[in-house]
Structure formats: structure tokens, C-alpha cells
Amino acid sequence: MLPTLPPLRCLMKNIWRDAMGVLLVLAFAWARPSAAGVVIDGTRVIYHAQDKEATIKLTNAGKRPILVQTWMNQVNDTSSPGASKVPFTLTPPIFRLEPGKGQAIRAQYTREPLPTDKETLFWLNVLEVPPKMKADDRSVLQFSVRTRIKFIFRPSNLPGSPGSAFEQLSWTLAATEDGRGVVLKASNPTRYYVNFAQVGIKAGNRSYMHPGGGMVAPGATEAFAIPDFDARSVDGVKATFETISDLGAIGKHEKPINP
């Protein structure tokens, strides 16, 4: 018996779909993406209350001049430049940066009241806009790239040390709201933010990691979901975490989980 052939319309549809797929692959292979060019010196900014200003250095590591705009906003604020009210000014807020050149940004505290008994976190945003394409650059994909890093205001005479704040964290396990999973909770009794590159659980020879890093604010508790871990079947588990220092150094730590 001869095999049944699909209708002609289906054949044409499949051919058109496959042809479009090939064309898309070729288009992206031909187009050269315009990579991000601005490099920020450091992974975070620590602004000490007694300082007159903090300096952030930017470098254009690309091959073309770019327009750079900088602004700050609060932790849960996603507003556009100029819309967020923060007690800091950035100078210059917008500038042209030539390839291979650097630019220092000055951040100054305008002295509006901020908490004096704990750190306060802001975001520093850096937006780079590539130059307008020339007529012969139609094969170049261009993007405006925004990078943001933590900007921490640190009051004077806080008790303890930011470098050892992780030692005072307490860790507990709890069920997720739907009861189908487990979260690892970190409670921070200190006056400092503790930043994590990784958070997870070590049980025997196995590790169960939270997908991504995170942080826990002063005096707060943060929950980190731990996929695939069943707390009912394992005893003696430990919290395993990697902290990020003021200078961006990674420290690996383990600590027993409280009952």
C-alpha cells in the first residue's frame, strides 16, 4: 500500500516555516552585535557618611564613542532618570565617552536625613547609548545597555564590622506558602547589608542551591527557595553561602541551620 501523502497546503506550510528559520539564522549570523562598552570600576559603591564625595570610575572598553547617562534610585524604585528622589547628586550626569578613555563620576550627599543606625541601599544606574549608525553599518545590531550596581550609604560609628556581619546571621528552614517546597531563611541582626553570590544547603555529600544570589538587609529576614530539597528526610544540614565584600571579594562559609 502506498503511504498517504499530506495535503499540498501542509507541505507548503512546512517548507515556508523551514525557509524562514534558515533566513533568521543567517540574518543573526550576519549581523554583528554591538557589545556593551562601559566598564565600571568596582562592583558596589560604599559612601561613608563622613566623606565629602565618592568617586566612581567608568571606562569605555569599546571601539566607538558612546553617550553615557547616570542616575540613582531607591531599591524598589524603577523610575526613569530624574524621577526618583534620592539625597545624592551625580556629576556629570550625562557625557560623551571616547573609546579607550575614562571618566570619573562624583557622587555627593545632599544631607537630607537618612537613618543613622543602619546602612541604606540605593541603586547606581549607568546607561550607555551607542552612536547613530552610518549608512554602511546596516549589519550591526545596536542596543542601549543599562548597568546598575549597589550604592550603600554607611553611617559613622555603626557597631560591629561589615566584613564580619555574616557571622551573626541565623539560618532556619521553612515550608513554602504552597507547602510543596522549602525555603532557607537568613535573619540579619546587624546594621549592615550582607550580600550573597550563592546561597544553598549542604546535606551530607550533596548540595542544593538557590538559583542566584541575593542579599539580606539590616534587621531583616530574607527567604531563599531551595529546589529539590526535602527537609523531612535529612538531618544535620548546613547553610552554605558565599558573601561579597565591599571590594567584591568572595568568601565561602558554612553554618548550622537552627531547628
Rank of each mutant, 00 (worst) to 15 (best):
L2K: 14
L2E: 15
L5Q: 14
R9G: 01
C10W: 13
C10D: 14
C10H: 13
M12N: 12
N14A: 14
W16T: 15
R17H: 12
D18N: 14
A19M: 11
M20C: 12
M20E: 13
G21A: 07
V22K: 11
L23H: 07
V25F: 06
V25W: 00
A27D: 12
F28L: 14
F28I: 12
W30L: 09
A31R: 11
R32V: 13
A35L: 11
A36R: 05
G37Y: 00
V39P: 01
V39Q: 11
G42H: 10
G42W: 08
T43L: 09
V45S: 00
V45N: 02
I46F: 05
Y47L: 04
H48Y: 13
H48T: 10
A49M: 06
K52E: 15
E53G: 03
E53P: 01
L58P: 04
T59S: 12
T59E: 13
A61K: 08
G62F: 00
K63S: 11
R64E: 15
L67S: 13
T70Y: 01
W71Y: 15
N73H: 10
S79P: 02
G82N: 07
A83G: 03
S84R: 11
K85R: 15
F88C: 06
F95G: 02
L97W: 06
G100D: 01
K101D: 04
K101Q: 10
A104Y: 01
A104L: 02
A107Y: 04
A107N: 05
Q108Y: 00
Q108E: 11
T116A: 12
E119F: 00
E119H: 07
T120Q: 10
L121I: 02
L121N: 07
W123Y: 12
L124D: 07
N125G: 02
V126L: 06
V129K: 12
V129C: 07
P131R: 14
V140F: 05
V140L: 13
R146G: 10
I149Y: 08
K150T: 03
F151V: 06
F153V: 00
F153T: 07
L158K: 12
P159G: 02
P159E: 02
G160I: 05
S161C: 01
S161F: 03
G163V: 07
G163Y: 02
A165E: 04
S170Y: 01
W171T: 02
T172H: 09
L173C: 03
A174Q: 15
T176Y: 05
T176N: 09
D178P: 08
R180H: 09
V183K: 12
V183Q: 13
V183C: 07
V183G: 01
K185H: 08
K185R: 15
A186M: 06
A186V: 07
P189I: 03
T190A: 10
T190V: 09
F196R: 08
A197D: 06
A197S: 05
V199C: 03
I201D: 03
K202H: 10
N205P: 03
N205M: 11
H210D: 06
G213M: 12
G213A: 14
M215T: 11
A217N: 05
P218K: 08
G219S: 10
T221R: 08
E222D: 03
I226W: 01
I226G: 03
D228S: 11
F229G: 06
F229T: 00
A231C: 02
R232I: 02
V234R: 09
G236N: 11
V237D: 06
T240S: 12
D246G: 05
L247W: 00
L247I: 04
I250A: 03
H253G: 03
K255D: 00
P259A: 15
P259M: 09
